[in-house]
């Protein structure tokens, strides 16, 4: 069974069409990365999933319930992180903790929160608004993990975080999903962080069908090659993007065979992502 099912999802803001007939699932126990450049509709999709936006057409189901009308029980099974670590900044840390502890009483695991919190050298009496972005992220993620959700939806968790905090978050996330009973849908612009974490990947592109593929398959089949600058590309099938750099030309795509005179590039996830979506 799927934790999230999106069927024929289309959305427009006025005349501005964001996407059309988007279909994807987040299977239970899997980590799915929702990737794309700015403005392709990642946050819009998350807002639709959380019932804060009604799609122009199509539907989203979370644990089998319409995302626009989730029951209290289903809400308690979802951990949500909004872009920019949105929270009640005017509260003190201890008050925010108490709020989550009370609201998620049946599932709350306080040791998970304090495990993360003790890494911060801040007092529980400090207001959230006085924390740095990294500290604030740890408090919020600690609370989300402590509420022990079955489904985590993370909208750009890396926004404003330095390398140390990002690594800390990834380590905790790996620990959180190690039993393979948690589902995760996440977006980020630091795509290399997701290597070794993802099971599936959805790459959204403006005006094009999104790519929905197993992560391993993507990494195995999506390739990049360097060619002489004046190579005729018309005879090469499967090119998703290309760009010229000095005397060479780089091409990226799902190729059935290696093009003539081509030298294979070693791609990390970010290279592959950019190769698929194309550079600016």
């Amino acid at each position: 069974m799927n934790a999230i099912e999106c069927r024929n999802l289309s959305h427009s803001f006025g005349k501005n069409r964001i996407y059309e007939k988007l279909n994807f699932n987040v299977p239970r126990g899997k980590v799915v990365g929702l990737l794309g450049k700015n403005g392709v509709g990642k946050s819009t999709t998350i807002n639709i999933l959380m019932g804060n936006l009604e799609p122009t057409s199509g539907e989203c189901l979370i644990f089998g319930e319409d995302s626009n009308n989730l029951s209290a029980n289903t809400k308690s099974r979802i951990g949500l992180l909004y872009e920019g670590y949105v929270t009640y900044d005017y509260l003190k840390i201890k008050d925010l903790y108490k709020l989550y502890e009370k609201e998620y009483a049946a599932r709350f695991k306080k040791e998970l929160f304090f495990d993360l919190f003790k890494k911060l050298t801040v007092s529980e009496n400090q207001k959230i608004s006085t924390l740095s972005c990294g500290q604030r992220s740890q408090v919020i993620l600690g609370l989300i993990f402590a509420s022990d959700p079955d489904l985590l939806i993370l909208d750009d968790y890396s926004l404003g975080l330095d390398t140390g905090y990002r690594r800390l978050f990834i380590d905790y996330l790996k620990k959180f999903i190690e039993n393979k009973d948690k589902s995760v849908l996440m977006t980020t612009h630091i795509v290399n962080d997701l290597d070794e974490l993802l099971d599936e990947i959805i790459i959204m592109r403006k005006g094009k069908e999104p790519l929905n593929i197993g992560y391993k398959k993507f990494r195995d089949t999506f390739r990049g090659f360097s060619l002489p600058r004046n190579t005729n590309l018309e005879n090469i099938d499967g090119i998703e993007s290309s760009f010229k750099l000095g005397d060479e030309m780089q091409i990226f795509g799902f190729f059935k065979k290696k093009p003539i005179n081509a030298k294979e590039l070693k791609l990390n996830l970010e290279d592959a992502f950019l190769g698929y979506t194309g550079r600016y």
């Binding site: 807002n47 959380m50 019932g51 804060n52 029951s71 209290a72 029980n73 809400k75 308690s76 979802i78 949500l80 909004y82 920019g84 949105v86 929270t87 009640y88 005017y90 609201e103 998620y104």
Partner: peptide, 18 residues
């Protein structure tokens, strides 16, 4: 206004109640 700032209302609506 406190609910409107940064769209906090989205969080408030997500607490596990109707």
């Amino acid at each position: 206004f406190h609910e409107r700032i940064n769209g906090r209302l989205r969080l408030s609506l997500h607490f596990p109640h109707s």
